[in-house]
Amino acid sequence: MVSVQNITKEFGANRAVDNISFEVTPGTILGFLGPNGAGKSTTMKMLTGFLTPTSGTASVNGYDILKEPIEVKNRIGYLPESSPAYQEMTVLEFLNFIADCRGFTDLEKRTARIKEVISLCHLENVGNQTVETLSKGYKQRVGFAQAIFHDPPILILDEPTDGLDPNQKHEVRKIISGMAEDKVIILSTHILEEVDALCNRIIIINDGRLIIDQTPDEIRNEHGNKLDEVFRKLTSSTHNS
């Protein structure tokens, strides 16, 4: 359960996120939509504790992001945009580091979990390769493996399929929808078909403000059939100005 209350982030005079509130319950795959620079990543970075909100707050399974950041971080798996990882480490070394940080002290459990995550993300062939030598698709999967490592109840994915080829996209979507049942998944994307294929709830952000919070069906009933036309109609004001 994620609950966001009047969260706002200002960078100098620029208000990147403006008073956004919403709640997400388990079983939801929430699609975070909006043009570039709308405030999607900033909102996600605040939820994961990387940025501190200027005002407002949020809670994750009852833990406040400002008061108990470590408890929040224990419950969130986060895939940052462009999935950064330590380049000089091999995939196995990197996952071992994540296991260390996530408190997997029992050697048996840890080895089992690493094996499990590697097979789930199809990383079997690159375990001993350093991250810098991997293709974009593999790097993304390493980021994904890192995010789901501790089997978190909340997954926050910033453009999880960005830069992948169609097969890889399909693969990642399959993994995401396979995990959805009892989790809260929040993902941002530019790809509208992805929202259609995956999400059961959509939030559209424009200019830092939340302008739509509905299910895909509700949006269709209200605004017409084509999701990309709806998107353009609702967010075009920034492009004209």
Binding site: K45, N74, P84, C101, R102
Partner: peptide
């Protein structure tokens, strides 16, 4: 520079 700081500070580490 490499962006790994975002990874590091979203792990449960102060």
């Amino acid at each position: 520079r490499s962006g790994t700081i975002e990874l590091l500070f979203t792990l449960p580490i102060t």
